[in-house]
């Protein structure tokens, strides 16, 4: 029995350490964000602020148009996520529940497209955006990944188990195919939709490369681009509390959302993603 307690204490300790390491950078960021600019923060003794300095959140808006950037990030992430959930589930529905000429070939082709990495063709994609007149417009960040192969793949796998008999019944009742998708399939697959939406939202909100390429003026930047452009340097000449206030504004929305939704339902997708 004693052996068991020792190993369970060990397991508990391990989890505590892991939780501490996971939390520390986020907590430290929050603590520095409310420190007066003149205070230093390099040691354990200096970890707590002497007073709560909310003015950092105002100061950071003088360095960059942070609220405009925030709005841009919200627009891009939300509209992109809604579009990708809609288009992926619609295509996944067609692939899972209908027979049409070339279906299997098109699906294998779709899987094969996952081998083409988007980052390696940034130059032609940039030139296409320039041709379309989409440079410095938020639409350039929303449209390109509005329907992705991975998303369609997971949606199709999930929709496969939707009972055909239900669809037959509603067809007899005179429902159109789109009605069947909208009224019957979507509610049933909502766990998969939530999972895909969470992953899409996290990826879009945190994206750096594409907005860095396509957005050219500070008021069009997303939060990540603006933060990445802040002048920082070794040592303490940089007003770190102000910069950490900016970093906090970029992290908090998703963290708060995550706590509200609890687990973001991501587990559902990984469960589906890893079978086999």
């Amino acid at each position: 029995m004693a052996k068991k307690t020792i190993s369970s204490y060990f397991a508990q300790a391990l989890i505590f350490i892991a939780c501490f390491l996971a939390l520390f950078p986020i907590l430290w960021m929050l603590l520095i964000a409310v420190k007066p600019v003149t205070e230093s923060f390099g040691t354990i003794r200096e970890i707590l602020p002497s007073r709560i300095a909310f003015e950092n959140f105002y100061q950071v808006s003088l360095l960059m148009p942070i609220w405009q950037n925030f709005l841009n990030s919200v627009i891009v992430s939300l509209s992109g996520t809604i579009l990708t959930v809609f288009f992926c589930s619609l295509a996944g529905f067609a692939f899972a529940k209908y027979k049409f000429p070339g279906r299997d070939f098109l699906f294998i082709f779709l899987i094969a497209t996952m081998m083409v990495p988007p980052e390696t063709n940034v130059i032609p994609v940039f030139l296409i955006m320039r041709q379309l007149g989409w440079i410095n417009k938020l639409i350039s960040l929303i449209i390109p990944r509005a329907a992705t192969a991975v998303g369609i793949f997971y949606m199709r796998q999930y929709i496969l188990s939707f009972p055909d008999s239900l669809m037959e019944q509603s067809r007899i009742d005179g429902c159109s195919e789109f009605r069947i998708y909208w009224n019957m399939v979507l509610p049933v697959i909502s766990p998969a939709l939530a999972a895909w939406a969470s992953i899409g939202l996290i990826a879009r909100w945190n994206e750096l490369l594409w907005p860095l390429l396509f957005m050219r003026t500070p008021e069009k930047f997303t939060l990540m681009v603006s933060l990445s452009q802040l002048p920082v340097s070794e040592g303490l000449s940089t007003p770190w509390p102000v910069i950490m206030a900016g970093a906090t504004i970029a992290v908090l929305p998703l963290v708060i959302l995550y706590f509200i939704l609890q687990k973001f339902q991501v587990a559902d997708l990984t469960a589906g993603a890893t079978k086999g």
Partner: peptide
């Protein structure tokens, strides 16, 4: 819930934190 937080946090923000860390 705690252990999953890093995945939700922006690489850019935490990159700045690691910079001073």
């Amino acid at each position: 819930t705690i252990l999953f937080l890093p995945y939700v946090s922006a690489a850019v923000s935490i990159g700045l934190v690691f910079y001073i860390l």
